[in-house]
Design a protein around this nucleic acid. Structure first.
Lengths: 342, 342
DNA sequence: TTTTAGCACTCTCGCTGTTAGAGTGCTAAA
DNA sequence: TTTAGCACTCTAACAGCGAGAGTGCTAAAA
């Protein structure tokens, strides 16, 4: 693969733009007219031909215009796209929306998913932030009803696990409070490992609480077990490439099968690249069902505290510039929120 | 509309069955052959003609077989369908799956959504149970990090609200515990109304907690603000009636737009009919986007404690018998869980 | 050497016409 | 009242055709 000439780059860029805009093959003449190019359609044709040889363009049929290939998109995203930042007005609007929310992670994630989906016209997905290391800070037991007690485990980062325990027999709030204090003192600052090494003689009640804590920590340690927020699934169906519902199914199955999604997220979005944005085009060979799609991902959060992933899934013919800025911007908003809250 | 003859009922029933099975128009001859009917195709044709006049059948074109109308489905579901209960083996399998879960409402709801979607080949949706009356049982404040404190509100039914409060300044766990006790004594057994009538002199901290509690109760009072669990969205796309993705979008938009969904659920599934199953065919005139769909709904939970809704959304050509049994069965499982837990 | 005009060539898309087959409705006989 | 038989209708599938779009190539112009 040779280096492309400036003119070839320009033409490739225009073709990608135009195709993203129109969803239709783009012809040499059309390009010259629409953008008032200072060359003839024949010249453009020659360059197109060269770009096709290089593998950046293809034609659906002999006498059709050109369409970007996977490699074409990749070159565009990597080399040609100027990094447009979001217009100030939009930043303000979005910030305003968040400022009107409660200080509630869940609500913020929901809003972020909605905004992301609406602005990119694609499907958005966001995983809830996962604490980086599970260290206990605090344990509290609260009597609720009969033999039921609510157990709350507060982690170092402020992360919360809770569960309703069913006890052997009713226990008063006083007794529970005493146990809460005891356990809090013993385990404060400890992680899962220390927990499983503790082996004193324990009452039945203590055993139940211990069992639950271990269980909770084991689960939260197998990283991605958190909730996933999505929106804009129907946006995908509006794209012409998914008018065949079979194609749409392939892409959407990914969103339903948690395991697939987790694979995707964990294999790509590296935990230590907060704020960086990754672009996956056409499944990058690994995800067959995503051959028609692109995914834009970013880790958000704070490296020492908790991180999650957010991204959009759309057709390969996606407004990359806008989507990437959007992902980056929202990643920033959520990161800030986590830093403030925790 | 006259009463249908026994034979007409039989034919209508067979046509509905056959169409649900094959997704194709059903012809008189086909019916006679497949089911070894003791009459000729001409006779069946005559009856079909009558059923068409009555509005239970229609033909897509002059020389095509018949297809049930909305009214046809309705008659089938209301009058013709024998109430099949789930085979024992399947009940056991499903029960077993649940028994292997933790005692966690969220996990049960997720599992229920998955099972429901898989068994009905349609989209499932379940709303988290909402407490019937919001009465405070208990308040607990837990220091987490800096100026942050976790506030937990335990309701009479065992329902839990929690939120991270941002305080004016750091407060020790001791102080928080004192306030917890005080508020718990004052407000135990009270509901929203009593809360807003309390007007002593309050510290800054107290005001913050009060404000949150009111807010939480107001929100939980406007009934359907709970989480919604879904699965099987892609099942819909597999049905031939949604191979046109535009139709699929219409139906799926409902699942994305919370407000639409809440409308549907609240207007149909009445809170006091636990275990009863409602069937909505073709949107029943009210939901234009559901003209091609049917919805099967049931309230679950316990009247005095908390209730939620579960159901399936599928094409009108849906396996009603199986789906209804499935909805009823899972409704029962979730109800039992709620009764046990709370 | 590069660009461009011009033209032949190719392939799709939409239209039309035709045909085979499926399924009905009707009529007249059982 | 049921049924056999047949005429009739409509669709789905296929082929043929022409228009139009867009390219690739060639030869002339810059």
């Amino acid at each position: 693969m040779k280096e492309l000439s400036a003119r070839q780059k320009r033409i490739l860029s225009l073709i990608v733009h135009e195709y993203i805009y129109s969803a239709d093959t783009v012809a040499s003449k059309h390009l010259v007219e629409k953008y008032n190019l200072d060359m003839s359609s024949a010249t453009v044709r020659n360059e197109m031909s060269a770009l096709t040889d290089e593998g950046y363009l293809k034609q659906p049929h002999t006498s059709a215009g050109r369409v970007p290939t996977e490699a074409g998109y990749r070159y565009f995203v990597g080399q040609l796209m100027q990094d447009t930042s979001l217009p100030e007005a939009m930043r303000r609007t979005i910030n305003h929306q968040f400022s009107q929310m409660h200080n509630d992670m869940k609500q913020w994630l929901e809003l972020a998913a909605t905004v992301l989906a609406n602005e990119t016209h694609a499907a958005s997905l966001i995983t809830a932030p996962q604490p980086v290391e599970a260290r206990i800070k605090h344990i509290q037991l609260i009597a609720t009803h009969g033999r039921q007690a609510l157990a709350v485990l507060v982690m170092e980062g402020g992360q919360i696990h809770q569960h309703i325990l069913t006890l052997e027999e009713p226990v008063s709030q006083e007794q529970l409070s005493i146990l809460s204090t005891k356990f809090s003192q013993i385990f404060a600052g400890k992680n899962l490992h220390a927990l499983s090494q503790y082996h004193g003689t324990m009452s039945q009640l203590e055993k139940i609480v211990m069992a639950w804590m271990e269980d909770e920590l084991v689960r939260s340690d197998r990283l991605p077990t958190g909730e996933i927020y999505m929106d804009g699934i129907t946006n995908m169906l509006a794209e012409p490439e998914f008018s065949d519902s079979e194609e749409a199914r392939k892409a959407l199955r990914l969103l339903e099968e948690r395991s697939l999604l987790q694979d995707l997220l964990s294999q790509t979005a590296l935990p230590d690249t907060i704020g960086g944005v990754q672009v996956l085009i056409g499944g990058e060979g690994n995800w067959n069902d995503l051959r028609q799609c692109s995914v834009i991902l970013s880790r958000y959060g704070s490296p020492g505290i908790a991180t999650g992933t957010l991204g959009v899934l759309g057709p390969m013919r996606m407004a990359y510039g806008r989507s990437i800025s959007m992902v980056r911007f929202l990643s920033g908003i959520l990161s800030d929120f986590i830093v403030e809250q925790w």
